[in-house]
Amino acid sequence: MAEDVITLSALTKEYGGFKAVDNLTLTIRRGEIFGLLGPNGAGKSTTILMMLGLTEPTSGTVRVAGHDPTRDPLAVKRKVGYLPDDVGFYDDMSGLENLLYTARLNGIPDETGRERALRLLERVGLSEHGHKRAGTFSRGMRQRLGLADVLMKQPEVIILDEPTLGLDPEGVRDFLHLIQRLSRDEGITVLLSSHHLHQVQQICDRVGLFVAGRLLAEGNLAQLSAQLFADEPILIEADVRPVSEELVEQLARLEPVIRVERRQDGTLLLSCRTDAAPEIARLAIQSGAALHRLNTKAYGLDEIYHRYFEGGDVRV
């Protein structure tokens, strides 16, 4: 069984009465990619800063890679790489020089540092640009250089704060796959925060939903759906032509079906307690109508996201 690398228990951070992080308990296991999903201002960055010992928690404890960041920040910072959102570099130094500076700050001998920097630049696809001034780098290049910078110290854990912010869709995909490959190849635990559910959905093993300083739910996608939609039906979309009143009545009488709705475009939307697709198909064909399409909709993060974050009203 994989051990826990990050353990937060009853973590709270208050800014003069306002609770930025409220009683957060969370464990992240070695080697997994964990996505901290939440809207802006949910307290994601504050949580990350507390994990690095850059901010002291009001109460509660943090353990990262076996150390307490509040008491022993250096031990944590030796093992944890942190990529802030909108990472900055020294513009008048080249990309390689920026990496070498990080190597020196980490006490890595120069030859080792240079070797590692060149290898990492190649890894993130910047080997041709390593000698250019960092000031000339585009947003995507800076982000990739940031990833190389984080990996210079050969961390056990990397924490990425909104790593995809400001990248174009292609850049986002490349960057996320890069993170995924690195995590798999080197066995690095990754914690990434985002307010983009699609991106988190793509590469994360587990996701934590974080709203107004509180963790609403955590787990993989199926677990999240189960947690959040426990009493909720499965949605089945059926495109049946022609639709007779009789068919609708028959469908409504089916045991798992809660509700049948006729939509503008002529398709039927059925809310069911369990997956009733076979029965629906049989009934439709028996009635003599043509079944064009039958679609079982699983709840994705999209629905979860909209349900909790959209419109600003949080239903807990």
Binding site: L54, L74, K77, Y82, L83, G107, G146, D149, K153
Partner: peptide, 14 residues
């Protein structure tokens, strides 16, 4: 302003 302070402080230094 350059955004290097947080990167610097995440290195093992006080």
């Amino acid at each position: 302003n350059k955004g290097t302070l947080s990167r610097l402080l995440s290195q093992p230094l006080h």
